[in-house]
Every structure is written in C-alpha cells, then in structure tokens.
Amino acid sequence: MITQIRTALVSAVLFGIGFVAVAVPLSLGLRAATPLPDLLVLSPKLKAYQAAPEKYDTVFVGTSRTFYHIVPDEVERGAAEAGCPDWNVYNLGVFGLTGAEEDWMVDQVLAAGGDNLKRVVIEDPLPNARELSEVTTDRARYFNDPALLPAQIEAITSYPESLPKRVFRAGMQALGMGFDLSGVGRGAAMAFPPGVAPDPMTFDMSKDGFEALGSILTPEIEARRKDFEDHPERYAEELTRYGAHSDEDVTARAVYLAERLDRLTARGLNAALYISPDLPELDRTPRTGEAVKALPGDYKVLNFNRPDVYPDLFDRDLWFDFSHFGETGARKLSYKVGSEYCAMSKAGKE
C-alpha cells in the first residue's frame, strides 16, 4: 500500500512538473501574442483618448463613480468660473476599476498624453475580486499579467479591511493567476476565430467619456434603481455611516494613493485624488482622503464624500442608486470638482 501511495505521489509530482513546464511558457507566449480584448466601455474610451490626446489636458481615471459622475463640460465650467479657463477634460472612468487596472490605465494615459497633458486625477480604486467568476473573465485574465503582480499585491495589501479578508482576496487573485497561467482557452481562441466576428464595442463620445447613469438601461442598472427606490429608509441608514467608528486602518491605503500621486507629480503633472460621494463607503473613503492630506507632502485631495461639508450633494433626489448620482447630481458635483480643483491649483500647486 505504501509503495502504491509513493508511486502515485511521484507520478503526480512528475505530472505536475510536465504540466507546469509546458503550460507556463505556452501560456506566457500566447498571452504575449494576444491583444487587449475588446472590453465594454474601457476599450472604446481608451482608444478614443489615444486617438486624440492633444484634445485634452485633464484626464480623470477611476471607477464608475468617475464614469457616471464626472461631466467634463461641467468640470470645465466650474474651473473656468474659478479662474482656470480653457481646461479640456476627459472622463476615463470605467466601472469596476481595481488598483492594478487603474495603474495600467494611468500608464496608457501617460504614454499617449504627451506634452499637452497637464492634469491627471485618480480615484481610490475598488478592491480586488472576491469571487472566482470575477477572476476568470477576459478582462481579469488580461490584468492577471505577471508584470502587474506587484501592483495587484499592493492593491490587496493596502486595502483597508481585516487581514482574513485580504488573505481571501489574495487567494482569489492567486486562483485567477493560476487559471491564466494554465493557458486554458488561449490556444483555442487563437486557432479557431469566431465564425462571425463580433461587433466592436462602441461608446458615445459626444460627452468626452461621460455617461449619465440610467440613460442606457440594463437589467442590472434597473435592479439597482429599483432597490434604491424601494428602500428609502436605507438612505438615512447609510448616511449614519459617516463619522461612525471603524477599526479599519486606512494608513496603508493613504500611502498607496500618495505613491501614485507622487509618481504623477514626478512626471511634471498636476495630480489629484478624487473621492466621490458614495453612501456605502462613507465610513472609509472620506477617512482615506483625509489620511492622504495628512501625509507629509502637498497632496491635492478632492474629498467630496463628506455630507457635513457638502450637504447639498446628499439630497436623496440627486441619487440614482446608493452609490451613484443621476445626471443632475453628476453635473452639480462636477461643477464643484472643477471649481475646487482650480482653486487648489491656483494656490501654487499646479
């Protein structure tokens, strides 16, 4: 029996060696030959910016709270009325943007932007995935690039949550990377192209990357809206999160964000951190923004997730769901963003 177990274990180890020896180089080789998949919102918005970077001097990179909240025209109007005329703003917000994805996106902007680029505003990105289905998508696979591993680790370890939760996210990330390194599907996708080429992802660029939430309805968006409408009492409950005690230490996240701002500043850019109004994050992101400001250095933080400072932004009628404004709210916020960013920039920080 022991001999049989030993034989089985040796065989399994040898099988594993054979597997890894072929899967990893094959996967990496095929990955290198695979372009960025055509991703909803991300691809058309990035391509549009790369095609005409000279049109914009200010780029906002962030999550759905950049995508649905930053109206370039309103930011420009707010800035102009505050004394910063002629800003040209581009919204490069993409829903579900995580840390490594945001780093990658900023790199793309810097590579394409050239001399015309003056200002880059980043957002506190979303935490990494918690479910297996989220780490095996085309998008997740692309960003499971081994070259982005340090960025993934930094994003996970800096996120203000308990150690077991971070360990769980790290495990999920490892599964995602293992899935990608196994190479599953890569050869098939390359050797057998679809019989009918799918239509490329498109996006209405008439608003420089902004989309009003609810202007295009999907079942998920409708469900979010319905949930918001059906639970008015939860709105008040969410507001009580602000200022409530939380034992999640935001220091590491603040340092993580400050490093990203430093990197942009070192390139001669006027960099800022934008903290969007977001009800479920009221106990976290406002503190993170303040922690960044408190760090040694001169960081510009547009911290709008503060009901006591911006009570007019927390009127329930402005909200589409618990995390996002509708268009009216987005315009109101954007005007303030432009105006405050200009004020900070004029105070000798540009």
Binding site: I17, G18, F19, A21, V22, A23, L26, V184, A189
Partner: peptide, 18 residues
Amino acid sequence: FALATGALAALALSFVPL
C-alpha cells in the same frame, strides 16, 4: 509517461475553449 501526460495535458488545456 507522467512527464509526457503532464505536458500533453497542458497543451490540451490551451486548446479547450472557455
């Protein structure tokens, strides 16, 4: 055999459509 099947399994997996 163990090494070869491991290598072939990796090769096969790459051609498994998602």
